[in-house]
């Protein structure tokens, strides 16, 4: 994911451009239709629940909509939205404003638990992490970003990315460890 470069499009001074800024943009609608679900998946792993996921997606898409007339061909709206979502999440943005986006459970039905117990334990342990740590892990292990890219996306230093990641992994280790000691004995020691 490359850092979104803000491009100010000053052609917007013509009447035509101005009008475009105020009118519904079919390209925006197309982007939402095409990428909405993927963004919601990303929001879900970032936030851990469908409500906050929808909030994050909505907020980020509204920001994208506002910048849309200034986007140029070389800008990547998806990376803009993803960066915005990660930043919103770490900014402890919380007053619920979901008012626009409705969501349905996934096609195969909404399961209460992940198929495997160790993944379910991991998912629950993730919910105990501070937002920034969770975001760093999601960007690294879900988005597959390098630490440098994560630093750029979250607006923090590379050192902070590394320290947050290692602290988060440490917490997961001990949390998941406890889970396993309580329950799934067979996996004990796997991660130690």
């Amino acid at each position: 994911m490359q850092q979104f470069a803000w491009q100010v499009h000053l052609g917007g001074d013509t009447d035509d451009e101005r009008r475009r800024q105020l009118e519904a943009d079919p390209r925006f609608a197309g982007f939402v239709a095409e990428r909405g679900d993927a963004l919601l998946r990303y929001g879900y792993v970032l936030a851990g629940n469908p409500h906050d996921a929808a909030d994050l997606v909505q907020e980020a898409l509204l920001k994208l909509r506002a910048s849309w007339p200034r986007l140029r061909a070389k800008d990547n709206p998806e990376s803009y939205v993803r960066t915005t979502m990660a930043r919103l999440h770490t900014a402890a943005w919380r007053l619920r404003r979901r008012e626009l986006l409705a969501w349905d459970p996934p096609e195969h039905g909404h399961h209460d638990a992940l198929p495997s117990e160790d993944e379910q334990a991991m998912w629950e342990a993730l919910s105990g992490l501070p937002r920034k740590q969770r975001a760093v892990l999601v960007l690294r292990y879900y988005e597959g970003l390098s630490d440098e890219e994560i630093a750029a996306a979250l607006g923090i230093s590379r050192g902070t990315v590394r320290s947050q990641a290692s602290r988060a992994l440490g917490k997961l280790r001990s949390a998941v460890g406890e889970q396993i000691e309580e329950g799934v004995g067979s996996e004990r020691g796997e991660w130690r």
Binding site: A24, F28, A29, G30, V32, A33, G36, D37, L40, R41, Y42, G43, Y44, V45, P50, A53, A54, V57, Q58, L61, L62, R65, L100, L101, A102, W103, D104, P105, P106, E107, H108, H110, H111, L114, P115, S116, E119, M122, W123, L126, L137, V138, Y141, Y142, L169, L172
Partner: peptide, 23 residues
């Protein structure tokens, strides 16, 4: 962790139409 996130993402909700219009 990578596996968990991948599988969890599959359980994410889906947007209902008409998301773009509402936005």
């Amino acid at each position: 962790l990578r596996r968990t996130l991948g599988h969890a993402a599959e359980r994410a909700p889906r947007l209902t139409a008409p998301a773009a219009e509402r936005l």
